[in-house]
Design a protein around this nucleic acid. Sequence first.
RNA 1: GUGGCCGUAGCUCAGUUGGUUAGAGCGCCAGGUUGUGAUCCUGGAUGUCGGGGGUUCGAAUCCCCUCGGUCACCCCA
Length: 420
Amino acid sequence: MVERPDFRAPKGTQDVLPPESARWEALLAVFSDVARRFGYGLVQSPMFEDIGVFQRIGEGTDVVAKEMYDFEDKGGRALALRPEGTAPVARAWVQHRPAVPWKVWYATPAFRYEQPQAGRLRQHHQVGVECIGSADPHVDVEIIALGHAYLWALGLRQWRLVLNFMGTPADRAAYGAILQAWLRARASEIPPADAAKIDTHPLRVLDSKDPVTAALLVDAPRMADHLDGASRAHGEAVQDGLRALGINFEIDPSLVRGLDYYTHTLFEFQSSALGNAQSTILGGGRYDGLIEQLGGPATPGIGFGSGIERVLLTCDAEGVFDRATPRLDCFVIDTTGGTAAVTLTQVLRQAGLSADRSFDDRSMKAQMKAAVKASARLALIVGEQEAATGTVAVRDLDHAEQTTIDIADVVHHVRQVLDR
RNA sequence: GUGGCCGUAGCUCAGUUGGUUAGAGCGCCAGGUUGUGAUCCUGGAUGUCGGGGGUUCGAAUCCCCUCGGUCACCCCA
Protein backbone atom coordinates (compact mmCIF):
# COMPACT_ATOMS: atom_id res chain seq x y z
CA MET A 1 0.00 0.00 0.00
CA VAL A 2 2.61 2.47 1.03
CA GLU A 3 4.83 3.10 -1.92
CA ARG A 4 8.45 3.85 -1.72
CA PRO A 5 8.90 7.59 -2.03
CA ASP A 6 10.46 8.78 -5.23
CA PHE A 7 11.83 11.93 -3.70
CA ARG A 8 13.18 13.21 -0.47
CA ALA A 9 14.45 16.57 0.66
CA PRO A 10 17.74 17.33 -1.11
CA LYS A 11 20.99 16.54 0.66
CA GLY A 12 21.70 18.96 3.44
CA THR A 13 18.14 20.30 3.64
CA GLN A 14 15.39 19.62 6.15
CA ASP A 15 11.65 19.76 6.44
CA VAL A 16 10.42 21.37 9.64
CA LEU A 17 7.03 19.98 10.60
CA PRO A 18 4.65 20.46 13.51
CA PRO A 19 5.17 20.30 16.41
CA GLU A 20 8.84 21.25 15.92
CA SER A 21 7.82 24.14 13.68
CA ALA A 22 6.06 25.73 16.67
CA ARG A 23 9.53 26.42 18.07
CA TRP A 24 10.45 28.22 14.88
CA GLU A 25 7.41 30.43 15.16
CA ALA A 26 8.27 31.15 18.76
CA LEU A 27 11.91 31.84 17.99
CA LEU A 28 11.02 34.28 15.23
CA ALA A 29 8.59 35.99 17.59
CA VAL A 30 11.36 36.37 20.17
CA PHE A 31 13.80 37.76 17.66
CA SER A 32 11.40 40.18 16.00
CA ASP A 33 10.33 41.43 19.41
CA VAL A 34 13.92 42.07 20.51
CA ALA A 35 14.67 43.78 17.19
CA ARG A 36 11.58 45.95 17.49
CA ARG A 37 12.55 47.04 21.00
CA PHE A 38 15.97 48.06 19.70
CA GLY A 39 14.38 50.12 16.92
CA TYR A 40 15.03 47.79 13.98
CA GLY A 41 12.54 47.29 11.14
CA LEU A 42 12.08 44.22 9.00
CA VAL A 43 13.84 44.11 5.63
CA GLN A 44 12.86 41.65 2.94
CA SER A 45 15.11 41.20 -0.05
CA PRO A 46 15.33 38.56 -2.77
CA MET A 47 16.69 35.14 -2.00
CA PHE A 48 18.92 35.39 -5.05
CA GLU A 49 21.03 38.21 -6.38
CA ASP A 50 23.29 39.00 -9.27
CA ILE A 51 26.25 36.77 -8.51
CA GLY A 52 28.45 39.86 -8.55
CA VAL A 53 26.91 41.07 -5.29
CA PHE A 54 28.58 38.19 -3.52
CA GLN A 55 31.72 37.96 -5.64
CA ARG A 56 32.41 41.61 -4.99
CA ILE A 57 32.47 41.13 -1.26
CA GLY A 58 34.39 37.92 -0.86
CA GLU A 59 36.09 36.69 -3.97
CA GLY A 60 38.73 34.93 -1.98
CA THR A 61 36.57 33.34 0.68
CA ASP A 62 35.35 29.76 0.64
CA VAL A 63 31.76 30.88 1.13
CA VAL A 64 31.89 32.71 -2.18
CA ALA A 65 34.59 30.89 -4.11
CA LYS A 66 33.52 27.29 -3.67
CA GLU A 67 30.26 27.05 -1.74
CA MET A 68 27.96 29.24 -3.75
CA TYR A 69 24.74 27.96 -5.28
CA ASP A 70 25.06 29.83 -8.55
CA PHE A 71 23.04 29.41 -11.69
CA GLU A 72 22.03 31.02 -14.93
CA ASP A 73 18.36 31.85 -15.49
CA LYS A 74 16.46 31.58 -18.75
CA GLY A 75 17.45 35.13 -19.57
CA GLY A 76 21.12 34.34 -19.29
CA ARG A 77 21.59 36.25 -16.05
CA ALA A 78 24.29 35.00 -13.68
CA LEU A 79 22.62 34.67 -10.29
CA ALA A 80 23.35 33.07 -6.93
CA LEU A 81 21.24 31.98 -4.00
CA ARG A 82 22.29 34.09 -1.06
CA PRO A 83 25.03 32.43 1.01
CA GLU A 84 24.69 35.03 3.76
CA GLY A 85 22.51 37.92 4.79
CA THR A 86 24.64 41.03 4.86
CA ALA A 87 25.55 41.57 1.21
CA PRO A 88 21.93 41.63 -0.04
CA VAL A 89 20.98 44.16 2.63
CA ALA A 90 23.97 46.30 1.74
CA ARG A 91 22.99 46.11 -1.92
CA ALA A 92 19.44 47.15 -1.05
CA TRP A 93 20.76 50.16 0.84
CA VAL A 94 22.92 51.22 -2.09
CA GLN A 95 19.95 50.86 -4.43
CA HIS A 96 17.37 52.74 -2.33
CA ARG A 97 19.56 54.98 -0.17
CA PRO A 98 17.28 55.12 2.85
CA ALA A 99 18.19 57.67 5.50
CA VAL A 100 20.89 56.69 7.94
CA PRO A 101 21.33 55.19 10.39
CA TRP A 102 19.36 52.45 8.68
CA LYS A 103 18.49 49.78 11.24
CA VAL A 104 16.96 46.57 9.91
CA TRP A 105 16.51 42.94 10.82
CA TYR A 106 15.85 39.88 8.69
CA ALA A 107 15.05 36.20 8.82
CA THR A 108 16.11 34.32 5.73
CA PRO A 109 17.36 31.05 4.34
CA ALA A 110 21.03 30.91 3.37
CA PHE A 111 22.55 28.48 0.92
CA ARG A 112 26.02 27.01 0.85
CA TYR A 113 27.14 24.02 -1.14
CA GLU A 114 29.16 22.12 1.43
CA GLN A 115 29.31 18.78 3.20
CA PRO A 116 26.45 18.67 5.70
CA GLN A 117 26.74 17.61 9.31
CA ALA A 118 24.94 18.45 12.51
CA GLY A 119 24.55 22.21 12.73
CA ARG A 120 25.71 22.67 9.14
CA LEU A 121 23.30 22.42 6.23
CA ARG A 122 23.17 23.34 2.56
CA GLN A 123 20.09 25.40 3.29
CA HIS A 124 20.06 26.87 6.74
CA HIS A 125 18.24 29.85 8.18
CA GLN A 126 19.52 32.95 9.81
CA VAL A 127 18.09 35.80 11.75
CA GLY A 128 20.22 38.90 11.74
CA VAL A 129 20.44 42.67 11.94
CA GLU A 130 22.32 45.38 10.12
CA CYS A 131 22.89 49.02 10.96
CA ILE A 132 24.18 51.06 8.04
CA GLY A 133 25.44 54.61 8.12
CA SER A 134 27.13 55.19 11.45
CA ALA A 135 30.70 54.58 12.54
CA ASP A 136 29.87 55.31 16.17
CA PRO A 137 31.27 52.55 18.41
CA HIS A 138 28.06 52.80 20.41
CA VAL A 139 26.33 51.20 17.44
CA ASP A 140 28.70 48.25 17.84
CA VAL A 141 27.67 48.09 21.47
CA GLU A 142 23.99 48.22 20.57
CA ILE A 143 24.31 45.45 18.01
CA ILE A 144 26.16 43.20 20.41
CA ALA A 145 23.64 44.01 23.13
CA LEU A 146 20.84 43.06 20.74
CA GLY A 147 22.43 39.69 20.04
CA HIS A 148 22.96 39.22 23.74
CA ALA A 149 19.33 40.07 24.50
CA TYR A 150 18.15 37.59 21.89
CA LEU A 151 20.17 34.67 23.23
CA TRP A 152 19.21 35.61 26.76
CA ALA A 153 15.51 35.75 25.89
CA LEU A 154 15.70 32.23 24.52
CA GLY A 155 17.10 31.12 27.84
CA LEU A 156 20.62 30.36 26.59
CA ARG A 157 23.34 30.87 29.17
CA GLN A 158 26.23 28.60 28.27
CA TRP A 159 28.22 30.71 25.86
CA ARG A 160 31.01 33.25 25.80
CA LEU A 161 31.30 36.44 23.84
CA VAL A 162 34.57 36.75 21.99
CA LEU A 163 35.82 39.98 20.41
CA ASN A 164 38.66 40.98 18.16
CA PHE A 165 39.51 44.27 16.50
CA MET A 166 40.74 44.45 12.95
CA GLY A 167 41.11 48.21 12.57
CA THR A 168 40.59 50.02 9.30
CA PRO A 169 40.98 48.31 5.94
CA ALA A 170 44.41 49.95 5.79
CA ASP A 171 45.29 48.60 9.24
CA ARG A 172 44.14 45.21 8.20
CA ALA A 173 46.08 45.21 4.97
CA ALA A 174 49.24 46.43 6.64
CA TYR A 175 49.02 43.86 9.38
CA GLY A 176 48.22 41.14 6.84
CA ALA A 177 51.45 41.92 5.01
CA ILE A 178 53.47 41.88 8.22
CA LEU A 179 51.95 38.60 9.33
CA GLN A 180 52.44 37.11 5.90
CA ALA A 181 56.13 37.95 5.90
CA TRP A 182 56.50 36.51 9.39
CA LEU A 183 54.75 33.30 8.37
CA ARG A 184 56.73 32.95 5.15
CA ALA A 185 59.93 33.05 7.13
CA ARG A 186 58.69 30.04 9.07
CA ALA A 187 56.83 28.25 6.28
CA SER A 188 58.92 25.11 6.64
CA GLU A 189 57.81 24.65 10.25
CA ILE A 190 54.11 25.14 9.50
CA PRO A 191 51.92 22.13 8.68
CA PRO A 192 51.08 22.00 4.94
CA ALA A 193 47.35 22.65 5.36
CA ASP A 194 48.06 25.91 7.15
CA ALA A 195 51.11 26.79 5.05
CA ALA A 196 48.88 26.77 2.00
CA LYS A 197 46.90 29.69 3.42
CA ILE A 198 49.94 31.94 3.88
CA ASP A 199 49.84 33.37 0.39
CA THR A 200 46.07 33.64 0.06
CA HIS A 201 44.74 34.31 3.56
CA PRO A 202 47.46 34.87 6.11
CA LEU A 203 44.93 35.98 8.72
CA ARG A 204 43.14 32.66 8.43
CA VAL A 205 46.25 30.90 9.71
CA LEU A 206 45.60 32.58 13.04
CA ASP A 207 42.57 30.48 13.93
CA SER A 208 44.16 27.17 12.98
CA LYS A 209 43.23 24.20 15.11
CA ASP A 210 46.56 22.54 14.49
CA PRO A 211 48.53 22.47 17.77
CA VAL A 212 51.84 22.85 15.93
CA THR A 213 50.65 26.02 14.24
CA ALA A 214 49.06 27.29 17.43
CA ALA A 215 52.30 26.85 19.35
CA LEU A 216 54.23 28.71 16.69
CA LEU A 217 51.73 31.59 16.62
CA VAL A 218 52.33 32.48 20.24
CA ASP A 219 55.22 34.66 19.08
CA ALA A 220 53.52 36.00 15.96
CA PRO A 221 52.95 39.74 15.48
CA ARG A 222 49.59 40.86 16.84
CA MET A 223 46.86 42.86 15.19
CA ALA A 224 46.45 44.89 18.35
CA ASP A 225 49.99 46.22 18.01
CA HIS A 226 49.34 47.46 14.51
CA LEU A 227 46.21 49.56 14.93
CA ASP A 228 46.30 53.29 14.47
CA GLY A 229 45.16 55.63 17.25
CA ALA A 230 41.59 56.03 16.01
CA SER A 231 41.12 52.29 15.60
CA ARG A 232 42.47 51.70 19.06
CA ALA A 233 40.05 54.28 20.46
CA HIS A 234 37.14 52.62 18.65
CA GLY A 235 37.96 49.29 20.25
CA GLU A 236 38.28 50.86 23.68
CA ALA A 237 34.92 52.60 23.29
CA VAL A 238 33.20 49.34 22.38
CA GLN A 239 34.69 47.61 25.38
CA ASP A 240 33.73 50.47 27.69
CA GLY A 241 30.17 50.31 26.41
CA LEU A 242 29.90 46.58 27.01
CA ARG A 243 31.29 46.99 30.51
CA ALA A 244 28.70 49.67 31.17
CA LEU A 245 26.02 47.16 30.21
CA GLY A 246 27.55 44.43 32.31
CA ILE A 247 28.06 42.23 29.27
CA ASN A 248 31.08 40.01 29.78
CA PHE A 249 33.47 39.42 26.92
CA GLU A 250 36.96 38.30 26.16
CA ILE A 251 39.41 39.44 23.54
CA ASP A 252 40.73 36.73 21.25
CA PRO A 253 43.44 37.96 18.85
CA SER A 254 43.04 34.79 16.82
CA LEU A 255 39.37 35.40 16.05
CA VAL A 256 39.05 35.63 12.29
CA ARG A 257 35.75 35.34 10.49
CA GLY A 258 35.02 33.73 7.19
CA LEU A 259 34.04 36.80 5.24
CA ASP A 260 36.72 39.27 4.31
CA TYR A 261 34.77 42.48 4.55
CA TYR A 262 35.08 42.95 8.29
CA THR A 263 36.81 45.96 9.84
CA HIS A 264 37.22 47.12 13.41
CA THR A 265 34.89 45.14 15.66
CA LEU A 266 34.56 41.40 15.11
CA PHE A 267 32.50 39.29 17.49
CA GLU A 268 31.11 35.82 18.05
CA PHE A 269 28.93 34.20 20.67
CA GLN A 270 30.33 30.69 21.04
CA SER A 271 28.33 28.01 22.75
CA SER A 272 30.01 25.64 25.16
CA ALA A 273 26.89 23.44 25.34
CA LEU A 274 27.12 22.00 21.87
CA GLY A 275 30.26 19.93 22.17
CA ASN A 276 30.87 19.77 18.42
CA ALA A 277 32.76 21.87 15.92
CA GLN A 278 29.82 24.14 15.17
CA SER A 279 30.04 26.27 18.28
CA THR A 280 29.42 29.73 16.84
CA ILE A 281 25.76 30.53 17.34
CA LEU A 282 25.84 34.23 16.51
CA GLY A 283 28.57 36.19 14.80
CA GLY A 284 29.18 39.42 13.02
CA GLY A 285 31.17 42.58 12.84
CA ARG A 286 31.71 45.96 11.30
CA TYR A 287 32.10 46.29 7.55
CA ASP A 288 33.08 49.87 6.83
CA GLY A 289 34.29 49.18 3.29
CA LEU A 290 31.47 46.97 2.07
CA ILE A 291 29.06 49.63 0.80
CA GLU A 292 31.82 51.13 -1.30
CA GLN A 293 32.68 47.74 -2.77
CA LEU A 294 29.08 47.47 -3.92
CA GLY A 295 29.26 50.80 -5.70
CA GLY A 296 27.88 53.06 -2.99
CA PRO A 297 29.50 56.00 -1.23
CA ALA A 298 31.93 55.29 1.60
CA THR A 299 29.48 54.31 4.33
CA PRO A 300 30.08 52.38 7.53
CA GLY A 301 27.95 49.46 8.68
CA ILE A 302 27.78 46.66 11.19
CA GLY A 303 25.61 43.61 11.77
CA PHE A 304 25.40 39.98 12.75
CA GLY A 305 23.83 36.73 11.66
CA SER A 306 22.69 33.82 13.78
CA GLY A 307 21.83 30.35 12.54
CA ILE A 308 18.36 29.23 13.62
CA GLU A 309 19.04 25.47 13.35
CA ARG A 310 22.25 25.81 15.31
CA VAL A 311 20.61 27.96 17.98
CA LEU A 312 17.80 25.43 18.38
CA LEU A 313 20.34 22.61 18.73
CA THR A 314 22.00 24.69 21.42
CA CYS A 315 18.64 25.20 23.14
CA ASP A 316 18.20 21.42 23.16
CA ALA A 317 21.67 20.96 24.60
CA GLU A 318 20.91 23.45 27.37
CA GLY A 319 17.39 22.14 27.88
CA VAL A 320 15.78 25.55 27.31
CA PHE A 321 13.19 27.03 24.97
CA ASP A 322 10.93 24.02 24.97
CA ARG A 323 7.66 24.68 23.28
CA ALA A 324 4.72 22.55 24.27
CA THR A 325 2.17 21.79 21.61
CA PRO A 326 -0.17 24.78 21.46
CA ARG A 327 -3.58 24.01 22.91
CA LEU A 328 -6.79 24.06 20.97
CA ASP A 329 -9.83 25.75 22.53
CA CYS A 330 -12.55 23.51 21.14
CA PHE A 331 -12.88 20.24 19.31
CA VAL A 332 -16.27 19.72 17.74
CA ILE A 333 -17.66 16.21 17.77
CA ASP A 334 -20.53 15.58 15.42
CA THR A 335 -22.10 12.14 15.12
CA THR A 336 -25.19 13.24 13.22
CA GLY A 337 -23.55 13.07 9.84
CA GLY A 338 -25.01 16.47 9.08
CA THR A 339 -23.55 19.94 8.97
CA ALA A 340 -23.42 20.63 12.71
CA ALA A 341 -19.62 20.43 12.82
CA VAL A 342 -19.35 22.57 9.71
CA THR A 343 -21.39 25.43 11.18
CA LEU A 344 -20.26 25.13 14.78
CA THR A 345 -16.52 25.29 13.98
CA GLN A 346 -17.22 28.29 11.77
CA VAL A 347 -19.07 30.14 14.55
CA LEU A 348 -16.27 29.45 17.01
CA ARG A 349 -13.50 30.43 14.60
CA GLN A 350 -15.25 33.64 13.63
CA ALA A 351 -15.48 34.46 17.31
CA GLY A 352 -11.71 34.24 17.54
CA LEU A 353 -11.57 30.86 19.22
CA SER A 354 -9.50 27.99 17.89
CA ALA A 355 -11.62 25.04 16.84
CA ASP A 356 -11.03 21.82 15.00
CA ARG A 357 -13.01 18.69 14.16
CA SER A 358 -12.79 15.20 12.70
CA PHE A 359 -13.64 14.27 9.16
CA ASP A 360 -14.74 11.06 7.49
CA ASP A 361 -17.65 10.21 9.82
CA ARG A 362 -15.68 8.51 12.51
CA SER A 363 -17.19 6.98 15.63
CA MET A 364 -17.75 9.12 18.70
CA LYS A 365 -15.00 7.25 20.48
CA ALA A 366 -12.59 7.94 17.66
CA GLN A 367 -13.59 11.61 17.63
CA MET A 368 -13.06 11.88 21.38
CA LYS A 369 -9.59 10.44 20.94
CA ALA A 370 -8.91 12.90 18.18
CA ALA A 371 -9.97 15.72 20.50
CA VAL A 372 -7.44 14.63 23.10
CA LYS A 373 -4.75 14.22 20.49
CA ALA A 374 -5.42 17.75 19.31
CA SER A 375 -4.77 19.01 22.87
CA ALA A 376 -8.26 20.46 23.02
CA ARG A 377 -9.53 22.07 26.19
CA LEU A 378 -13.18 21.39 25.40
CA ALA A 379 -15.08 18.84 23.40
CA LEU A 380 -18.31 20.24 21.95
CA ILE A 381 -20.53 17.27 21.27
CA VAL A 382 -23.46 17.27 18.90
CA GLY A 383 -25.25 13.93 18.68
CA GLU A 384 -28.79 13.07 17.68
CA GLN A 385 -30.20 14.28 21.03
CA GLU A 386 -28.42 17.65 20.88
CA ALA A 387 -29.27 18.13 17.24
CA ALA A 388 -32.92 17.49 17.98
CA THR A 389 -33.07 19.93 20.89
CA GLY A 390 -30.82 22.70 19.60
CA THR A 391 -28.20 22.09 22.28
CA VAL A 392 -24.56 21.11 22.52
CA ALA A 393 -22.80 19.07 25.21
CA VAL A 394 -19.69 20.86 26.42
CA ARG A 395 -17.16 18.56 27.97
CA ASP A 396 -14.11 19.90 29.80
CA LEU A 397 -11.46 17.38 28.83
CA ASP A 398 -9.10 18.39 31.63
CA HIS A 399 -11.65 17.92 34.41
CA ALA A 400 -14.02 15.38 32.90
CA GLU A 401 -16.97 17.71 33.56
CA GLN A 402 -19.82 17.95 31.12
CA THR A 403 -22.83 20.19 30.78
CA THR A 404 -25.39 20.69 28.07
CA ILE A 405 -26.17 24.20 26.90
CA ASP A 406 -28.28 25.92 24.30
CA ILE A 407 -26.33 26.11 21.05
CA ALA A 408 -27.05 29.84 20.80
CA ASP A 409 -24.97 30.40 23.96
CA VAL A 410 -22.00 28.37 22.82
CA VAL A 411 -19.47 31.16 22.23
CA HIS A 412 -20.37 32.96 25.43
CA HIS A 413 -20.23 29.72 27.42
CA VAL A 414 -16.93 28.57 25.93
CA ARG A 415 -15.33 31.92 26.68
CA GLN A 416 -16.55 31.69 30.27
CA VAL A 417 -15.13 28.21 30.75
CA LEU A 418 -11.80 29.09 29.17
CA ASP A 419 -11.44 32.21 31.30
CA ARG A 420 -11.71 30.54 34.61
C1' G B 1 36.17 18.16 -1.74
C1' U B 2 38.77 14.10 1.82
C1' G B 3 38.35 10.20 5.58
C1' G B 4 35.69 7.00 9.72
C1' C B 5 30.93 4.95 11.17
C1' C B 6 25.84 3.92 9.87
C1' G B 7 21.06 2.88 6.63
C1' U B 8 15.42 -3.27 8.64
C1' A B 9 7.58 -1.18 9.21
C1' G B 10 5.34 6.07 10.50
C1' C B 11 9.12 6.13 15.07
C1' U B 12 12.94 3.38 18.25
C1' C B 13 15.17 -1.07 17.33
C1' A B 14 15.97 -6.99 17.34
C1' G B 15 17.29 -10.28 13.51
C1' U B 16 21.96 -15.93 16.00
C1' U B 17 28.23 -18.87 11.91
C1' G B 18 24.12 -16.32 4.82
C1' G B 19 19.00 -21.11 5.02
C1' U B 20 11.86 -22.09 4.99
C1' U B 21 5.94 -17.13 4.37
C1' A B 22 11.34 -10.77 8.14
C1' G B 23 9.97 -9.64 14.13
C1' A B 24 9.08 -6.53 18.90
C1' G B 25 7.66 -2.04 21.41
C1' C B 26 5.41 2.56 20.48
C1' G B 27 2.17 4.82 17.07
C1' C B 28 -2.05 4.17 13.69
C1' C B 29 -7.07 1.81 12.46
C1' A B 30 -11.35 -1.18 14.14
C1' G B 31 -14.04 -3.71 17.93
C1' G B 32 -15.00 -4.85 23.35
C1' U B 33 -23.92 -2.66 25.21
C1' U B 34 -25.45 1.29 17.67
C1' G B 35 -23.50 8.40 21.98
C1' U B 36 -17.56 9.92 25.35
C1' G B 37 -11.31 10.52 26.23
C1' A B 38 -7.03 7.01 30.58
C1' U B 39 -5.82 1.92 31.53
C1' C B 40 -6.99 -2.97 29.94
C1' C B 41 -8.48 -6.90 26.26
C1' U B 42 -9.06 -8.59 21.06
C1' G B 43 -8.16 -8.03 16.05
C1' G B 44 -6.00 -5.40 11.76
C1' A B 45 -2.98 -2.60 8.05
C1' U B 46 1.87 -0.97 6.48
C1' G B 47 8.21 -3.27 4.82
C1' U B 48 10.40 -5.68 -2.81
C1' C B 49 15.40 -5.12 4.76
C1' G B 50 17.94 2.96 1.15
C1' G B 51 18.80 1.83 -4.42
C1' G B 52 21.60 -0.99 -8.28
C1' G B 53 24.94 -4.85 -9.53
C1' G B 54 27.80 -9.21 -8.06
C1' U B 55 29.18 -13.96 -5.28
C1' U B 56 26.01 -18.30 -3.87
C1' C B 57 21.67 -23.80 -4.55
C1' G B 58 20.07 -19.71 -1.29
C1' A B 59 21.64 -12.78 1.16
C1' A B 60 18.59 -8.19 5.49
C1' U B 61 23.25 -10.91 6.57
C1' C B 62 29.45 -11.31 2.10
C1' C B 63 31.77 -7.93 -2.09
C1' C B 64 31.47 -3.48 -5.41
C1' C B 65 29.03 0.99 -6.90
C1' U B 66 25.51 4.63 -5.70
C1' C B 67 22.16 7.65 -2.67
C1' G B 68 21.27 9.42 2.17
C1' G B 69 22.51 10.19 7.40
C1' U B 70 26.30 10.99 10.98
C1' C B 71 31.24 12.39 12.92
C1' A B 72 35.99 14.67 11.88
C1' C B 73 38.92 17.73 8.41
C1' C B 74 38.08 22.12 5.37
C1' C B 75 34.92 25.97 6.31
C1' C B 76 31.00 28.13 8.78
C1' A B 77 25.38 30.07 11.23
